[in-house]
Structures are given as C-alpha cells and as structure tokens.
C-alpha cells in the first residue's frame, strides 16, 4: 500500500508539468467534443468560468477544469490509513492501559497495568474518590454510575470532577473512565488500643508487629465470617484465624500485642479504567483525512474542458474521470449555453 501511494505521488509530480492544450486532431477524437462556429475564445471562457476554474489560458485556446482534487482522493485515503496505523503504533509504544479501584474515601497514586505482568506504575499525581453512587430509573434499571473524584498534586486539590460512563476525566494526558463498581469487605481491627481499618492484602506495621489480612471468608465452617491474618512471629511467617462471631477467636495476642477483630463491613468501590494514549490525536487526524479522501474520491469528479481556436470558430472538448453519463449531460448543456449566447 505504501508503495502504491508513493508511486501515485511520483506520478502527480510528473503530471504537474504536463497540462497543455492538445492539438485539434486529438481533441476531435475525444468522446465529448463539439464545434461552435463564430465564437470568441475570451467570451466562452467567461461563460465557463462560472462552473470551471481556468487552468491554462493561451492565445490559441484554454483549458478549464473542476474537481481536480478528486485525482488525489486515492492518495489521501491511503495516506490516512498510514496515519491511523502510525497513531495506533504511537499509542502502543508510548501509552498504556490499566485500571485503578478506589474505595470511597481512598486515595491512590498508582495504577495497575493491564497485561500479563500486572505491574503497578505511578500516576504522577494522586486520585481520591470522594463519592460513588448509582442512580436508577423509576423502572429500576441503572441510569447513571457516578464517581466523584479529586486530583491531588503536591498535597493540593487541583481538580474535581464527576466521572460518568461516556464522560471521562482527563488530566495530563491520562484518562479515567467509569468502568465498573462493586463492594469489597473492609476489616475494622483494634490493635493494642489503636483502631485501624484494613482491606484484604493490606499490610499493617506497628513496632514489632507486621500483619496482613491474607484471606476473607464469608463463612468459616459454621462459625460465621472470619479472616485469616498473616503475621511475622520473630521473623517467621505465621497465620491465625479471627472469627467475628466467636468470642474466643475474636481477640488474640500477636507478638505480644492484643489484636481484636471489631467489625467486617462491605464498602463500595469504583473501578476506573485508566489509559494514556499519546497517539489518539494522530488517529483522529487520520480519521478526518480518510473521510475527506473518501468524499473527494467518490463524490467529486475531475472534469476538464478544452477550448481551441479553429478555422470554423471554436472547438470545445471535454473529459471526465468518472460518471461519464452525467458529464455527457453537463457537456451538452454547456455547449448549448455557449451556443445560446451567439444566437
């Protein structure tokens, strides 16, 4: 395709120089031609320039044309495909796709990349979820998913926005889309008198104690909800079950600190799709170029009218790149118009 495009480009460069008026012999062999007796060149050019653009104006004759752009149509379309591909490669090379889940009230400054290696990378700023809500229609279907977020940079709130489906947040080239939502359990602990809130896999450290909720079970045998807490016992990893409804297992000593499971609650979170795509504007440019190219190529027609002074008067000849049936009618009308002025 690239080759084809380049070849066309070369042919345009070559063609540029060769617009000239053919001789009478060649014009009279064209499909559309007509002799107009006793008609001046200047006058006829005057009539035709209402519809056509004057390309060559000489002593002996003139060339007028229209829709010249249509000859570049195919070139524009093929270029646009290359531009779109270039834009998508730019996106692939310098962009990323990921997601971030935020509980209401939570702040994060990293996102999780999508792909085989689920790596976390820094955003460059922090994002706080102030609120998440779902609005419903009277019929019960969801109407709206709204995450109210704030962007925090250097400790200051720089931007606040409600992210909805079809209305993403864009900041510093990174876009946040409302993608999903749900609820996740959070665990309220009392660690040596200090009240803390942990989510699954969140690590808590205090003095010698290092602990993490390794697993949550809605039902541990018949004893109700419980969490498996992993901790380091003098450098050795160990785990202990905390059950909310069993008094004996609600409170345990880990590393000499009294740890008790106070409550387990479901907390809503919002799932935001994160993407950075520096190539997207190149892709948009490609799209615009493609629509322009298709329009020019299919709906404009390159038409040329040749005028040549001959002994009988004027020889008018025409050519069209496509849609010759339509051009035939137009040519007949034009020659009538030229003739009409004389009589």
């Amino acid at each position: 395709m690239t080759l084809c495009t380049l070849r066309r480009l070369l042919s345009f460069v070559k063609e540029k120089k060769t617009i000239r008026l053919p001789d009478e012999d060649r014009l009279s062999r064209m499909d559309f031609h007509s002799y107009v007796p006793g008609k001046g060149l200047g006058e006829t050019v005057g009539i035709l320039t209402k519809h056509y653009r004057l390309a060559v104006n000489g002593e002996q004759g003139a060339v007028l044309e229209r829709g010249k752009l249509s000859r570049y149509g195919v070139f524009i379309i093929h270029t646009s495909i290359i531009v779109i591909l270039a834009g998508s490669f730019t996106g692939l090379l310098f962009g990323y796709r990921g997601f971030v889940t935020l509980k209401v009230g939570e702040t994060k400054d990293r996102l999780t990349l999508r792909g085989k290696t689920a790596a976390e990378i820094p955003l460059g700023f922090a994002l706080t979820c102030k609120d998440f809500r779902v609005n419903f229609y009277p019929t019960g279907e969801p109407k709206d998913y709204v995450s109210t977020v704030e962007i925090i940079e250097n400790g200051k709130v720089v931007l606040g926005k409600e992210i909805r489906v079809n209305d993403p947040l864009s900041y510093k080239g990174i876009r946040f889309y409302q993608s999903n939502y749900g609820s996740a359990p959070v665990f309220f602990f009392n660690v040596g008198g200090e009240k803390i809130i942990l989510t699954e896999r969140e690590v808590f450290r205090k003095n010698d104690l290092l602990m993490m909720v390794a697993r949550f079970e809605g039902k541990v045998h018949d004893f109700g909800p419980g969490v498996l807490v992993a901790y380091l016992d003098n450098g050795e990893p160990k785990a202990a079950w905390f059950l909310k409804s069993v008094d004996r297992l609600r409170e345990q000593k880990l590393q000499g600190v009294k740890v008790s499971l106070v409550d387990i609650q479901e907390q809503p979170y919002t799932g935001l799709e994160v993407s950075r795509d520096p190539g997207v504007f190149i892709v948009w440019a490609g799209f615009a170029l493609m629509l322009l190219g298709l329009y020019v190529n299919f709906f404009l027609q390159h038409r040329r009218i040749y005028l040549l002074r001959v002994s009988e008067g004027l020889l008018v000849a025409g050519m069209a790149s496509r849609n010759r049936e339509d051009f035939k009618k137009e040519f007949e009308k034009l020659t009538e118009e030229i003739n009409g002025r004389t009589s």
Partner: peptide
C-alpha cells in the same frame, strides 16, 4: 462504503470516550 467508514470511525471516537479505547 462512505457511510460504513463514517460509522466505524464515529464508533471508534465514541468508544474512546465510553470504553477508554478507540
């Protein structure tokens, strides 16, 4: 073909705003 191209391209622009990828 023109309308299908326009349909695919407008769909891509929309997808960019709705789903995060064109």
């Amino acid at each position: 073909f023109y309308m299908l191209s326009a349909g695919i391209l407008t769909g891509a622009v929309w997808a960019h705003y709705a789903w995060g990828s064109y």
